[in-house]
Design a protein around this nucleic acid. Structure first.
Length: 246
DNA sequence: CTATGTAAACAAC
DNA sequence: GTTGTTTACATAG
């Protein structure tokens, strides 16, 4: 992620980012502004067991998944239960149905996705699903608050929007061009296309107009970055279609 | 209105 | 019975 500060906003300039890609300057600025917007006013996350009773399930699940060693290794629901029981104080005094709440969070929150774990010989080919953190939810974002640098993680529901930005970036990368998006209809095109390419079920539902009331509400009406802020580098529909073909 | 927690119906395994 | 999806409702801020 590009984290530098700059005063010039010359258009068309390309920056190299962490993964080696080149991004359009204006797009980068838009992403940064967006992330700032998204992370304003977040509370400090409690890190010790004595204080994590007030931390949300989603954050604790995130911490559980971050605690796994090995790249891409996730946790089964049972492993998540066990981790929460061992490493937090929250579940001890939550309702009897806290496991249901955990599953509810896993299912509803786009920060979490399930994958089929490679079957081991011991388990005799039985299907085992594991939950992983989406890359966007692993990140901590460094923000400047006054003269201090504060590290924050994104709230799971807010980070959904950041994830949308990732979707856009991925789809642009796929097409081999880079640009800011500021137009609702173009955004929709991108989301539809990405849902099709990735066969993302959650995204697919989103495209089909099923709203996730708890997490997706308001994304159209409220997201000023994606739908109201205007930039001048948005390619036309024809151009997009052209690029998509090749 | 947003964020979060809880309950429950229901399907698939 | 477990796991996962979804809707509905409650409450705090």
């Amino acid at each position: 992620m590009y984290t530098g500060e700059g005063s010039d906003r010359r258009q068309g300039e390309l920056y190299k980012v962490d993964n080696g890609e080149c991004w359009n300057t204006e797009f980068i600025y838009d992403v940064i502004e967006f992330l700032k917007f998204v992370t304003l006013g977040l509370d400090v996350e409690a890190t010790t067991p004595e204080h994590n009773g007030t931390v949300s399930y989603a954050k604790l699940i995130r911490r559980a998944l971050l605690s796994t060693t090995g790249d891409g290794l996730g946790m089964t629901v049972q492993e998540i239960y066990a981790w929460l029981e061992k490493n937090t104080t929250k579940v001890a005094y939550m309702s009897q149905n806290w496991r249901g709440s955990v599953r509810h969070n896993l299912s509803l929150n786009m920060a979490f996705s399930s994958y089929l774990r490679q079957p081991s010989k011991r388990q005799g080919g039985k299907k085992v699903w594991e939950w992983r953190l989406e890359p966007f939810a692993k990140k901590e974002v460094t923000l400047r608050k006054g003269d201090r640098c504060v590290k924050k993680i994104l709230k799971p529901s807010q980070v959904l929007k950041a994830w949308m930005v990732e979707v856009l970036m991925a789809s642009y990368t796929l097409r081999g061009h880079h640009s800011a998006v500021s137009n609702a209809s173009l955004f929709r095109i991108d989301i539809c296309e990405w849902a099709r390419l990735t066969r993302d079920r959650k995204l697919d539902k989103f495209v089909k107009g099923v709203t996730y009331l708890d997490t997706l509400r308001g994304i159209h009406s409220q997201d000023k970055f994606l739908f109201e802020k205007s930039t001048s580098t948005v390619p036309g529909r024809e151009r997009i279609a052209q690029l998509t073909k090749t």
